[in-house]
Design a protein around this nucleic acid. Sequence first.
DNA 1: CCAATTGTGTATCGACCGGTATGAAACTAA
DNA 2: TTAGTTTCATACCGGTCGATACACAATTGG
Lengths: 192, 192
Amino acid sequence: MPGGRPRAFDTDAALDRALEVFWRQGYEGASLSDLTAAMGINRPSIYAAFGNKEELFVKALERYVSGPGAFAAEALDAPTVREVVERLVHGAIELTTRTDAPVGCLMVNSVHACGPDAASARDAALACRMAGETALRRRFEDAPDLPDGYDAGTLAGLVHTITDGIAVQAAGGRTRDELRRVADLALRTLLP
Amino acid sequence: MPGGRPRAFDTDAALDRALEVFWRQGYEGASLSDLTAAMGINRPSIYAAFGNKEELFVKALERYVSGPGAFAAEALDAPTVREVVERLVHGAIELTTRTDAPVGCLMVNSVHACGPDAASARDAALACRMAGETALRRRFEDAPDLPDGYDAGTLAGLVHTITDGIAVQAAGGRTRDELRRVADLALRTLLP
DNA sequence: CCAATTGTGTATCGACCGGTATGAAACTAA
DNA sequence: TTAGTTTCATACCGGTCGATACACAATTGG
């Protein structure tokens, strides 16, 4: 079985470029011309290597989860409920206000890709979000230090709501320092 | 001064239809064909009555603020800080989980319209958001019942962050009842 | 060398985008 | 009626969208 002509680009590197374009411009706002320009490869190479635009987005989303968004899964390993929430909130702030990447959160942005042809991209992001929150709820359900009067699912929902809000605020231009003050107030009152 | 042919549609009613399309599909996702179909008028009538797509969006945004989003300005008239926050949060939940309108918040959706030609739409939404939060901060600055240790600007930022998060959660499919439980936990801990 | 296979570059596809030219239709003022 | 003005409906503009057809280049197995 012959090997054929070798690929002239690195798949993962190209995927990282695509991720950044999707992150900054959204699924609908990222045209194939933008993607090819950023990835440094031609249009047919994208289709040969990744399928179509939808599949490229899904692969970029996976890379986002296991790369810049990996802190969310790692935060669950923190020893206390308070520390889990703290790491999630602070991680969200750092993720969405980086200077070496687009502001905001790809996952939150993608929820608002409301065009008719962006449905599959939105569904993929929604599935990721749902999985993340379920894992967080499980973490709280098993926690012996969950404060009295706190429901695991409700707390997970509130933490997720706050991190979502942080992403919107970051996308709207709020600075990292401002968000830290907001987060400190939230943490101070929610889990004193 | 002659009168010319009278308009065959109601401007405000057509604007309401356009608002719903923008609300559901976003600025970029709403094509002129979608808009003409929903508004029941032809393309040139839109341009004659509203200008271009950008101006139509801005007018729809103003109608959103003074219509479905009017609760936000009215909430500032509540007598106590606690009640202002309560009305803002509960109003956000009701706004973003209506059954007779698209889920989510047009203002939050528009922040994530990241395409290059949606810049003016995003800027218009950002200006509205900024104005709203400034008014909220002023309300807290003048409040004699602002709890000790609470900074007016930080509290306004946190409330705004939470309402933003609510909009994202609603857009992601969370139900009104779930959001109410989340909001109750937030209010209970933030302003006991 | 010769197939067989796979990637690359160009050029293009039909569909749709936002926006408009054009002329008929419907009104007011005289 | 007639002139003037405004709106309506059709049909179309150049440009861009996502996706592909096609021919050529580069590699492996024989």
